[in-house]
Design a protein around this nucleic acid. Structure first.
Lengths: 81, 81
DNA sequence: CGTGTAAGGAATTCTGACACG
DNA sequence: CGTGTAAGGAATTCTGACACG
């Protein structure tokens, strides 16, 4: 499901990553969580899978800016110019 | 998905129910959310669907104790013993 | 019976920064 | 570059109770 309904704490559990890492990957534009009115991030199961993939790639020696290219070609994303 | 990963605030949004109603239905044993270490309820998408169904039934005049039987057997049963 | 609400507390999440390298 | 942490604040969720009917 692509519905953004999972909180960061749950994502931490599902991925094994730290909140710090998750937020950083968002900052690097590798994932795009939504926000609740109060500002809390909400992720989808797809995001969770994406994060696992990111983690694997980074462990393989890739850099965040390299992974961004991978994702842009894999799924359509609105471009802000 | 049956993974319990959705917080009550999100469930409120997805179902249109109030937290009070959601907690009450749990108290009535119509849904069985899990808990985070801190005590916060976590629901699955199945729970969300279940809640929508519960809401419909209650609007149709059913009572919570009647709905419990429905769920336990998977089909409506007689109230007589 | 089913649901609203005010009350006080505890757990969750947020941002910006300093640190290391 | 990628990640850890302490800091203070804001939003979220929890329980038990009183209320109405």
């Amino acid at each position: 499901m692509s519905k953004k309904v999972i909180g960061i704490g749950m994502v931490r559990e599902l991925t094994g990553l730290t909140e710090r890492q998750i937020r950083y990957y968002e900052d690097r534009q590798l994932i795009f969580p939504e926000r609740t009115p109060g500002g809390a991030r909400k992720f989808s199961f797809e995001d969770v899978e994406q994060l696992k993939e990111i983690d694997r790639k980074l462990r393989d020696g890739f850099h965040t800016f390299e992974l961004r290219k991978t994702f842009l070609s894999g799924a359509p994303r609105s471009l802000e110019t």
